[in-house]
Each structure stands twice: as C-alpha cells, then as structure tokens.
Amino acid sequence: MTSIAARTAAEISQRGRIRSAAFQGFFEGSIKATLIALTLLSVLTTVVIIAVLVEETIGFFTMADHPEISLWSFFTGTEWSPLLGAKPLFGVLPLISGTLLVTAIAGIFAMPVGLLTAVFLSEYASPRTRSILKSVLEVLAGVPTVVYGFFALTFITPYLLQPLSSSFGTYNAMGAGIAVGIMILPIVCSLSEDALRTVPQSLRDGAYALGATKFDVTAKVVIPAGLSGVVAAFLLALTRAIGETMIVALAAGGLAQLTVNPSQQVQTMTAYMVQIFLGDAPAAGVEYRSSYAVAFTLFLITFIMTWTGAIILKRYREEYE
C-alpha cells in the first residue's frame, strides 16, 4: 500500500504547472543585487564619514586668516579657548584630558562592579535571580543617556559628592564620570558575562574535580580563560564612554582645562561639539571648523579602540570554536 501511494504521489507531483525558470532566475538575481546594494550602504557610510571629517579638518588647518593653527599646535597646545579672548587658542590636550578623566572615572566604577556582577550572574546566581538581574540590567541599558545626565545633576553631585567635600561644584568631572560609569555598566556586565559563559563547563568540572573551591575555579580558571573576552568588553565599554555626549554636556561643565582633579569642571571633546553646534558660531568661522577637527580626533580614537576590541573578540571566539 505504501508503494502504491508512492507511485500515486509521484504521479500527482507532475500535475502542477511548472513555475517559470527564467522568471525565477531574474527574481533571484534582483534580490541578490538589492541585498548587495543594502550591504554597501554601510560601507558608504564609513567612506562618507571619513571624507567629510577629513575635508573639513583640512579646511580647519589651512585657514588663510589663521596661519598659527597647525597639526603640531593642535596636538601639543595646552590651552583651548576658541571663544574667549582676543586670540583664540586651539590646543586639543585639555579636551582630550577632560575626556580621559571622565572615562577613567567611569571605568574605575564600571569595570570592577560590572565584572563582579558578571561573575555573580554566571557562577553564583540561581536561574531565577539571574533572570531578574538580567532584566534590571536591560532596563539600565535602555535608559537614555540624557536621563543619566539629569541623575548626575540632581542626585549624584548634590547628594553623594557635595556632602563629602565642599570642593565639588554643580558641574564636575566626578559626577559626570560616575553617571557615564552607570551608563556603561550594563555593557561591561553583559559582554563579560557572555565571555565567562563561553568558558567550557568541562574546564570548571576539571578544577572542581581537583578539589578547588568556587573562588579557585572563578579566579584561577574561569576569569583567566575568559580574559580576552573580558578585555574586549572593557574596551568596547570605554569606547562608549569616550563618545558619550549628553551626560557630559549636562553634568561635566563647559570649561576646558588641563586637570586631573575630579571635583573640577572639565570639557570633553563631545561636550565642545555640543557647545559649538548649539551656539551661534558662524558656519565658516574658525570655532565652527575646529569642531570638525575635534570630531575627527574623537573618531580616530574610538575607531582604533573598537577595532582593537573587535580583533580581540574575534581571536577569542576562534579559540573556542
């Protein structure tokens, strides 16, 4: 009976009208062409970003009425005062140091807290606790950064920092740095947790079988094995911190100064760009153009960091594949 059915099936299968192969070939070709075009859009984006930044930056360095601006003076100058004073000064170091100070504070807060939370999630937490904590982190990850800026202004600085020391002003690097740290915490945490969870269970079992405690296993087996993944997580999170704009624009202040004092206000590269694009600086003016040079510097820094992070992550994934 099976073979009769098989023969009947074979017969019926020939009944339908055959779909046009020519049309199908054309259709397949057009789909593929469309998909390639869409893929090239992301390449085009990169090309245009670089072209725009390079062109405008060259424009900034070759302005006829500002012969004093050079690559050397830009990267070694210790004063950034484009808007004040009779003679504007464009030394990018204060902006870079401001950015690094805020990023460092964020990293000092977020890296240990994020990593330990990740360890807790992957090694200690019960599945129930884990899913609750994961949703807390998801909420944190979804909060718009401007909200963290508001939090820095209305809670971190007045209720945490100012009671500690009267030297903290309304705007300071510390408050902004902590807020940026809170912002990158979910990134550090979820990426490191991914890294820790890809460490094969067999490695853990091997260590436990030798009589290791949970501490031994975590500190001496799991974290070293997942280290490059964790490093990549840190790098990617710090990249986000460097490029963060709204928090520092709200909470770090607007004074570009070369300082490591976290109670002082600092201006970051991104905050300077906000200042220029919000202000009335004329589009052909030197201040306006300087923001492109700053943007290019920022772009290069983050590009190198993401690249490094992506390469580390790729190597790391290959190790376990």
Partner: peptide, 30 residues
Amino acid sequence: RILSNRLMWAACLGATTIAVLVLSALLITI
C-alpha cells in the same frame, strides 16, 4: 581557602547590589 571563597562571594554580591541600588536611586529620584 574558606575565607577567600566567602570574600569572593561577598564581593560579587556587593557589586550586584550596587547595580540594583543605582537603578532604584535613579527611579526614585525621578
């Protein structure tokens, strides 16, 4: 060994608590 094990657990729990506290402080402030 037991102590280091406990400390590790406490540190992880502490870090996680910070994350939860931060979110609570944020929501309450707002």
